[in-house]
């Protein structure tokens, strides 16, 4: 449908982002916060950090995923409306990083959720995080154009089945 295509395309002009710390050391989290502040100021581009996952298009996830947080991370993911995109920020969100062999750590967001964009660094600079979000936007646009008529909603249903329970 034309209307859905327009909605999908216009979503990328003002994506709302939700931030979730899945057990990281805070370093990535303060850098995610720093992207909002005057030096980097992503709100210029319509990107807003939202408190609730129910309003978010993109989940910015940091941390190596501890065993305790896994359930909560899944719950946050399922609370997001489709289409949903995930950006894993920081070395430990990518692979576990320095915590790779800790007993309480699963080792990376992609062990639990389908990740769209990986931002490496310990912690990544705010510039790198913004570059990662821009990559997500490109993906959003590509998805909108490719799926067009069906919208991404049905694809996201398939996306959900990628989630391991």
């Amino acid at each position: 449908m034309m209307l859905e295509k327009i909605i999908a395309l216009s979503r990328k002009s003002s994506p709302w982002v939700c931030h979730f710390n899945s057990g990281g050391c805070n370093a990535c989290d303060i850098e995610v916060m720093a992207t909002l502040t005057p030096r980097f100021d992503v709100e210029r581009f319509g990107i807003q950090l939202k408190g609730s996952p129910r309003h978010a298009d993109i989940l910015v996830c940091t941390g190596p995923v501890t065993k305790q947080i896994r359930e909560r991370l899944l719950r946050v993911y399922h609370q997001m409306p489709t289409p949903k995109y995930i950006a894993a920020v920081g070395s430990c969100a990518l692979s576990g990083g320095v915590f790779y062999d800790c007993y309480n750590v699963l080792g990376g967001i992609d062990r639990v959720l389908p990740v769209d964009v990986y931002v490496p660094g310990c912690p990544p600079r705010p510039d790198a995080i913004i570059a990662g979000i821009v990559k997500v936007l490109q993906k959003m646009e590509a998805d909108a154009l490719e799926l067009g008529d069906q919208g991404r909603a049905s694809a996201a249903e398939g996306g959900n089945s990628r989630v391991s329970h």
């Binding site: 710390n21 800790c102 007993y103 750590v105």
Partner: peptide, 14 residues
């Protein structure tokens, strides 16, 4: 508390 517990003290021993 405990959501961010990663087991660093144990990992230090390795």
């Amino acid at each position: 508390l405990g959501y961010v517990h990663r087991g660093i003290e144990r990992a230090c021993q390795d």
